[in-house]
Structure formats: C-alpha cells, structure tokens
Design a protein around this nucleic acid. Structure first.
Lengths: 188, 188
DNA sequence: GTCTATAGCTGGATAGAC
DNA sequence: GTCTATCCAGCTATAGAC
C-alpha cells in the first residue's frame, strides 16, 4: 500500500490548491512541485486533471460530513444540533479565511462542461438536506408551527446556503450568525 | 463616438463568455475572434484582461438592477414587489439555463487575488439589500410579526442568495419557488 | 511505479506598420 | 485606433529511460 502514500499526498496538495486558488487557476506543474513528486507519478495515479477534480470533490464531501458528525457529537438535543450546523459552517469559514463552500465554488467554475463534477456537487447538497431532515424528524415541536416541517427543511437549507455564500463574499461570519438567529426563531 | 461601438461589442462578447464559460476559462483569443476585432483593438480599450473583468461586473450590476426595475414596474403593492423579486430571479435563471448568479460566480473564481472584483461583488449585494430594505419600509405590517423587520431583511436576502445558488446547482427553479413561498408566509 | 524530457498548444501582452 | 506578427511563459499530456 505504499503507492497510496503518494496518491494521498497528491490529493491533499491538489485539494488545498483547488480550494484556495480555484480549479482552473491551478496547474499540474504547481501540484507536482508542491507535492514534491514527478509528473509521471501524478498521471499514474490520476489519468487526467479532471479525475483529480472528481477525487477532490468526493474526498471533500466525506471530510465535510465527518467533520460535521464530530462537531455535533457532544450535542444531544436535535434542535441544538441543527443550530450547531451553523456554528460548524462559521468554524470552517473562519479556518479557511472565508474561502466559501467547496462545492459551490466548483459548481461556479465548471458549470456545464463537467457533468461528473456537477452531479457530485448535487450529491453533497442532497446529503446535506437528508442530514437536516433526519434531525428535524427528531425535533419535538413546541407549537403548531406557522411553517410546516417540509417548508422548514427548505428554509434551513436555503438559509445555510445563502449565509455561507454571503459570509464568503463579505469575509465576515455575520450572515451565518444572522441565519442561526433566524433558524432559532423558526424552530420555536 | 465611433470607438465606443467596438468597445461595446468587446464588452458584450466578453460578458457572455465570462458568464457562460467562466472568467479563467475564457481567453483573449476567443474574445477577439468572436467579437471580430483585432488583438490591438482590445488592448486599446481595455489595458488588461482584468480591466475587462471589472467593466463586466459593473456593467452586469447596472443591467441587473435595470432589469429588476423594469420587471417590478407594473406591480404596485410593495409586498408583491418583494415576492416578484423571486420571480425575476426565476426568469433570469430560466433564460440563462441556470447559469447562476453573475456575481457569486465571479466571487468564487477570483476570490482573493483581485480586490477590485471582490469589492464590486460586495457592492452588488449591498445594493440588493438596500433595495429590499426600501421595499420592506413600505410594507404595512398586518400582524405584530414574530420576526422583526431587520431580521426579515436578512431572511429575505439570505433566501434569495441561497435559492439562486441551489437553483443553479440543480438546474431547477424549484428552490426559488420554495423561497418565494417561505417569503410569502414570513411577510404575513 | 517513479522519474526526466519534451511535445503541442494556448495563455496574456507588446511592437510597430499603416 | 485598428491591424498583424510575434514573444515568452504557462498549460495538459505523453514517451521512454531507469
């Protein structure tokens, strides 16, 4: 399994560069240089740059949800878990200096010409919605809620998406804090 | 003013390509070819590709708000105007085959290395918030609203942002329709 | 499987004729 | 102010030695 050491290093370096500089602005040359491996080695593990991209998205999705699980683990109450999802995004945006959502960034960059990447971005969003829905199902409603549970799911999802985009644009966590407050009211 | 004819054609072609293919994926060669002008002419009007980018963002912002004004003109009631803002985005996304928000796309692509572009993207968002706020100020509240006006502004803004991103990712107007429904409930 | 060398092309930008 | 010719650095990808 020694070969996967190199593979991992390539993927790690590429992931960082794709996220920080953008996929199209990152060249193979820079990747092999910073990963300190040879050109041929990269193409041995990833037949094309596009394959590297799909591996990046899939890996990022897994890391994202693993990080979320870890972040929410100490919290018991499902409502508090839902609210902490905003905290998770704040935490991540702070760490990445408000680099924005990995998946929306890729979606904005390759929209159209890369169907694989496109489907993978959708997959992350579907998984996020499923995650929210599962938590919502555990919430015991305190009041007959002016807004139905299905609509509440949409609202929370859209608030998260919008707040992350806005936080990245302003390089400020305030939109995510605002969204959290709104969610708190809506969850009753 | 004959020179501005060429300038306009360059900007129009570049705008279309930047939006459809992305800024980094669009080369000068393609722009001059499709605009049917010479290399030197482009650099005469725009000293660098980056200048072309800032012109693109500014022009797009103006067109965006002019289009919005036009779209909302026949509507009287401020609440209906607010809801129609979602219809405007649906209309635009349908026309662009769900290409997404011009400004978020650029924000995702140049984040960091182009301060000018970054500030211009923020400018569009500020202007959008001001637009929503002005309409909200004209709405006569039917009920004591569980959610304050300032928070309502944030909510509407974040819903618009999130729904546009999601609509683009799914290539479907449903998220924008969902957001509109939510807004309708929140506006009472 | 990892390496170096290089092919083949396209990027943004400039110089100088007209 | 519009054009053509051209520079050089960068790109993705392949070939072939070890």
């Amino acid at each position: 399994m020694k070969e996967s050491v190199i593979r991992t290093r390539i993927l790690e370096v590429a992931s960082r560069l794709f996220y920080e500089q953008g996929y199209n602005s990152t060249g193979i040359n820079q990747i092999i240089q910073e990963a300190e491996i040879a050109r041929g080695s990269l193409y041995n593990h990833f037949p094309s740059k596009r394959d590297l991209l799909t591996a990046y998205i899939q890996n990022s999705e897994n890391l994202w949800f693993m990080g979320l699980d870890e972040f929410l683990k100490p919290i018991e109450d499902p409502k508090q878990k839902l609210l902490a999802m905003f905290d998770y995004r704040i935490d991540r945006q702070l760490r990445s200096k408000f680099g924005g959502c990995h998946f929306n960034k890729i979606g904005a960059e390759v929209s159209g010409d890369d169907l694989d990447a496109f489907v993978l971005v959708q997959h992350q969003k579907d998984r996020l919605k499923t995650y929210i829905m599962a938590l919502l199902g555990l919430v015991t409603p305190v009041q007959p809620a002016a807004i139905g549970k299905e609509m509440l799911l949409d609202t929370l999802f859209l608030l998260m998406e919008g707040a992350t985009v806005a936080a990245s644009a302003y390089k400020d966590s305030q939109p995510l804090k605002d969204a959290r407050k709104i969610a708190e009211i809506l969850l009753g």
